[in-house]
Design a binder for these strands. Sequence first.
DNA 1: GAGTGGTCTAGACCACGCA
DNA 2: GCGTGGTCTAGACCACTCA
Lengths: 249, 249
Amino acid sequence: MSEGSEIHPGFTRARVSLGRQVAEALRAAIMKGDYAPGSRLPSETDISETFQVSRVTVRTAIKMLESQGLVEVRHGSGTYVCDFGGRIRAGAQELRSISETIQEMGFVPRTELHARDVRPATEDEAERLGVEVGFTVVAMERAIYADNEVVAYSFDVIPAENLPARFVARFGTGSMFSVLDEIGYMPTRALAELHPVQSSEIGWGPQRPERGLFLLLDQVHFDRRGRAVVYSKTYFVEGRFQFVILRTR
Amino acid sequence: MSEGSEIHPGFTRARVSLGRQVAEALRAAIMKGDYAPGSRLPSETDISETFQVSRVTVRTAIKMLESQGLVEVRHGSGTYVCDFGGRIRAGAQELRSISETIQEMGFVPRTELHARDVRPATEDEAERLGVEVGFTVVAMERAIYADNEVVAYSFDVIPAENLPARFVARFGTGSMFSVLDEIGYMPTRALAELHPVQSSEIGWGPQRPERGLFLLLDQVHFDRRGRAVVYSKTYFVEGRFQFVILRTR
DNA sequence: GAGTGGTCTAGACCACGCA
DNA sequence: GCGTGGTCTAGACCACTCA
């Protein structure tokens, strides 16, 4: 552990909850090898003393790690580090950018803009985003790479009717989420549907799968005020990305 | 609301947490139409007074409903009932039997046993279950119906080497989970992977999809002691079941 | 029986939204 | 500015595991 700093109430520009800070510290310790797969973490009481936080806070941190499939909690026994292989593994209920996930698993992420358009919303898009048909949107088509291998093709639609042109222009350059953050539309929640898809019409370029089999993550992102800010269809190429879900009672 | 009974600490044979009880009561109220889609639930403080529980408990209840995509929480504003259509919608991170989910959505569930075998575990099964190759297992193939329409085909494997024959015999008759519960192997956690699958070899009977497209939920169930108790491959027929994931930061 | 995680409480204060 | 949800605490007691 040996962190100790960085963790403090006081809310000194604290946009990150204490629980998350503890979770990140524990995650780093695990990744660094302080706790080997199969070994036991310190007890919740110990951790709470180490970080000087309440046990409730420690528990929220551990729940986060658990939902990422990183640790396993056994009642009456302890919390144990999971063993996981080298594939890209993402906890499906963690909302984070795909690039971020790829990076954290030790691969080099890259996105490639294939098309970009400012146009009226289709009927489907309008319904999902809760706007009128014909509302102006920015539409993007991107390929997402991990170590130069296509992991997913993503189609994103962002309502832009009332957005200053200087912001509209920035979509397609750099991280979509950082632009959204700047204009105050940072997604905090997404409701996603999962569908299997087979199509030879999805994707492009030399790595386009022959008779492509994809896992479609069909999701609408909402900001903290409940406004729909992005409608995304991300087609994950089967076999290159491991989506994990921890299911509990 | 107007429940009031059933909710009490005291732990009179309470295997169900207070939070879950409150969640169930709220869920029932929503399903009954007490709160229409889009309308606001009472505030957390109000609910905690109504049910005579702490606000923390109310919050765990609301988190459950949120993860099922049933309500939407907006900071500073309130908790609102989501609008969802007539399709079967399951929160992917809730561990519950499929039949249970189907029933709760207002359909009539039915499972049909197609095959059943007691045999040695394959290499793959042994690895996933953490047992030796050749370990005796019960293997079942079942079709799961909602209102007489096939929703999924499920392949379940249960380690049975040391299980009394009288229990082994019961798998395939009635609910798999109730048998597991009786013998003390009730799953409390499952780690699932999601994959798209296309195959004409999955399924049987007149409703077998032509060129079947499925969402495969590939999962190992664990009991509270961390023992692997079931290895399931469930192939959901695309279009008949809506898997929802709430993703949060 | 000692030690671990699971549940619950009452109370405090912060951040946000909305009028 | 009031009411809403968000975070955090200290302490209590229960249920479970394991030696």
